[in-house]
Simulated assay, not measured.
Amino acid sequence: MIRLFLRQYRIWLILLMAWHICLNIVLTVDRGFASVSLLYINILWLSIMTICVLIIYVKDRHRLTAYDKKGRDYVEMVAQSCEEQLQALRDEKEEQSRQLLEQKDELLAWVHDMKSPMTALKLVHDKLDVKTREQAEKEWLRLYLLLDRQLHATRIQTIAQDNRLEPIPLQPIIIEEIKALRTWCFEKQLAIDVDVADVVVISDAKWLGFIMRQILSNAVKYSEVGANIQIHVHQHNNITQLTVTDTGCGIAPADLPRVFRKSYTGTIGRETKAATGMGLYLAKQAATALHIDITIASVQYEGTTVTLTFQQANDYVKTLGM
């Protein structure tokens, strides 16, 4: 134990001894200290140094006991201990990652399993009377959107491995998403003006459909009865901009900078309790992964415009050589 302690503090002990020797030399050579007792100074200095060393030793001996039993150098033992703790953290991280992957797989399996009863419900509701059928279809659509959002939320982390970039026409994707929301649109008597012509962009059809689904569902959700939603495409040079404009309640100025944050519902969402704060967040994540710029402009109580900007010569296109 004592040898380990001396090795640990050898630099400081050498420094104290050197200072002690220098003090003795000064007291011996300098005639001004001739009347000072050299023995007294040495005894006083050594006593103070001994007391300090003993205090440090008593304080640290419990900490050094474990290293002394193993008969190894203190510095090596500390380095080994740090490495062991680091490896333990790595192992814990790997275990957590494995558990997250298992939970993700289980969640994906659950979502896929839910599709079967939903398909059956879709067939059953056709046998209902008109009024009941409309109400059932509305609730079915809401359930479908929630499950679809959860499915894509689970897959968003692996979007780089789950996309296929190719030239795709915008109009069929938009029309398909509007058809999926037709029950909701009929209920609110909404008119949707689509002007996208034969515009083609480079993107992934499935993920682009998901982005449009989130944007359109928000536009429909916050539009008043009998309102109008406009979908237009503007092209300039190599840039294509798709805008979705509604005349709904709009977004408060304080909420606008935070609409893409995870789980942020905003003022309207808290008042109506109809928002989850995940739709625009997931749309933003997917758009960023596909090199699509998504922005929102809104005036409260007047309406909202969501803009998707596609660049024909983006990083993905250059990588693919298209």
Rank of each mutant, 00 (worst) to 15 (best):
D162A: 13
N163T: 12
N163G: 00
R164Y: 15
L165Y: 13
E166K: 14
P167K: 08
P167D: 04
P167L: 12
I168S: 07
P169Y: 12
P169D: 03
Q171I: 00
I174Y: 05
I175M: 12
I175Y: 08
E176L: 10
E177I: 01
I178E: 02
I178K: 01
L181F: 06
L181A: 05
T183F: 09
T183E: 13
W184P: 00
F186Q: 14
F186N: 15
F186E: 15
F186Y: 11
E187L: 12
Q189N: 12
L190V: 05
L190I: 09
A191G: 09
I192V: 09
D193M: 10
V194W: 06
V194A: 02
D195S: 13
D195M: 11
V196K: 08
V196S: 12
A197F: 09
A197H: 14
V199Y: 07
V201I: 13
I202C: 07
I202N: 14
S203N: 02
S203E: 02
D204C: 13
K206S: 12
G209N: 10
G209T: 04
G209P: 03
F210L: 10
F210M: 12
I211M: 09
R213C: 06
Q214S: 05
Q214V: 01
I215A: 01
L216R: 01
L216N: 01
L216Y: 06
S217A: 12
Y222F: 11
S223H: 05
S223K: 08
E224I: 07
E224S: 13
E224T: 12
V225I: 11
G226E: 06
G226R: 07
G226K: 09
A227I: 07
Q230F: 10
I231D: 04
I231R: 00
H232G: 11
H234R: 11
Q235I: 10
Q235P: 00
Q235T: 15
H236V: 10
N237W: 05
N237M: 10
N238F: 02
N238A: 13
I239E: 13
T240W: 00
T240G: 00
Q241G: 02
Q241C: 11
L242H: 02
L242M: 09
T243L: 10
V244I: 13
T245G: 06
D246G: 01
D246Y: 02
T247Q: 15
T247K: 14
G248F: 02
G248R: 00
G248N: 06
C249I: 14
G250V: 01
I251L: 04
I251P: 00
I251N: 06
A252I: 09
A252P: 02
P253E: 11
P253S: 07
P253R: 05
P253Q: 10
A254H: 13
D255V: 04
L256C: 07
P257Y: 01
P257A: 05
R258Q: 13
R258G: 03
V259Q: 06
V259R: 02
R261H: 14
K262N: 10
S263F: 08
Y264T: 01
T265A: 03
T265R: 15
G266A: 10
G266S: 08
G266I: 07
T267R: 11
T267L: 14
G269C: 01
E271P: 06
K273D: 15
K273F: 09
A274M: 15
G277P: 02
M278F: 09
M278H: 03
L280I: 00
L280A: 05
Y281V: 03
K284C: 06
Q285W: 05
Q285F: 04
T288I: 12
T288N: 13
